[in-house]
């Protein structure tokens, strides 16, 4: 990790520390303080946006481990979210389980389904793996629609809100806190997973599969592990989403969401935990901006044309990043930090 000018690591602990200086700790606590006091000065709308961002961050962290670190491109992530969502939804709605008991099961089930669809990853890669994961998206949704007696099929499934004792996570503020705690835990977990033996194996596979295998990395096991971990994150995100709406329907997990999640990774920066947050926040905020600007533009062009701006903007931004900054916003952020890191020395 690059350190500020004049700061040197003198121990292994210092070398491994994520937050190395007091300034970094202060900035972290300031950010967390700002985040967790948001309900005090934000309306329901802002809290809704932040809650959705939080849920998406959890999901895209999983995709980042799978795609950004292990190079197993998945365009079925929304499908894996649906597995977690419906597992938790069915356990709570039909069997009366507590959300807290259903959530680990949702994560586990999504992970296991991830392994199932990850099986072809040893034989196929690149474009062919993309096709396999697209199939996962549609097969999962098909299964949910077929088992309508337990999933509700196209009519969806009413899902209870999470509870602790008599307290129900019903208000926007309470659910915001719940999601943010999970988002912080997911960020912490994602950051540390890539610093483990498995994480280093993922990166080795991403950089050169053959070289990784020669070094002794078990490709099959680690690729499946990446699918498992990535889908566990998706399962948690899916469960949080349906319990937030108090309703589960397949329309909450459309194929295009899987594509946009990948777009968020491109914009934020693949293989970077900070990049996930940058990507999700920037594209979600862009979405909100377009929602507001659309009706204003409708004075000049037709409402339909103004509304299409959202898709155009998102697509355009992804193209711009692919061409001009393929390493994403995270890389830009590193450059900004590097510029100030030398201060007060010029070089």
């Amino acid at each position: 990790m690059a350190l500020p000018s004049g700061t040197f690591n003198q121990s292994y602990a210092q070398d491994m520390a994520i937050f190395r200086t007091k300034t970094q700790w202060i900035l972290l606590f300031a950010f967390l303080a700002f985040l967790f006091t948001c309900p005090l000065y934000s309306g329901d709308r802002i809290l809704t946006i932040l809650t959705i961002i939080g849920i998406t961050v959890i999901s895209v962290h999983g995709l980042n481990i799978l795609t950004g670190y292990c190079n197993q491109i998945s365009i079925g992530h929304a499908g894996f979210m649906a597995v977690g969502a419906y597992t938790s939804g069915m356990l709570t709605a039909h069997l009366g389980w507590s959300f807290w008991a259903a959530l680990p099961c949702a994560a586990l089930m999504a992970g296991l389904v991830g392994i199932l669809f990850g099986l072809p990853s040893l034989k196929v890669k690149g474009f062919y793996l993309i096709m396999a994961t697209i199939a996962a998206q549609f097969i999962i949704i098909w299964f949910i629609l077929q088992f309508r007696n337990i999933t509700g099929g196209g009519d969806g499934l009413a899902v209870p809100r999470p509870e602790i004792g008599d307290f129900v996570f019903k208000s926007k503020a309470s659910y915001f806190y719940l999601v943010m705690i999970f988002a912080c835990l997911a960020t912490f977990a994602a950051t540390n997973i890539v610093r483990t033996r498995a994480g280093r194996a993922f990166i080795a596979i991403r950089d050169n599969e053959l070289a990784a295998e020669v070094m002794g990395v078990n490709l099959w096991a680690y690729k499946l592990l990446a699918f498992f971990i990535g889908c566990v994150f998706a399962g948690v995100a899916g469960a949080l989403l349906v319990h937030y709406v108090a309703f589960a329907t397949v329309d909450q997990f459309p194929f295009m969401n899987s594509v946009w999640y990948l777009g968020m990774l491109i914009v934020g920066g693949m293989g970077s935990t900070a990049g996930v947050i940058f990507g999700v926040v920037s594209l979600k905020l862009l979405d909100e901006l377009v929602v507001i600007v659309g009706p204003m533009l409708a004075v000049v062009v037709s409402p339909q044309a103004a509304a299409s701006l959202s898709l155009i903007m998102r697509g355009l931004i992804i193209i711009i990043f692919l061409i001009f900054e393929p390493r994403g916003l995270a890389h830009r952020w590193q450059m900004v930090k590097a510029y100030y890191r030398l201060w007060p020395f010029s070089h």
Partner: peptide, 19 residues
């Protein structure tokens, strides 16, 4: 507001219009 038939989007639009 245009919700793009997107469930996540409709949630924030709902709050915005309510506000």
């Amino acid at each position: 507001r245009d919700d793009e038939l997107n469930v996540e989007k409709v949630l924030s639009i709902y709050e915005e219009l309510k506000d």
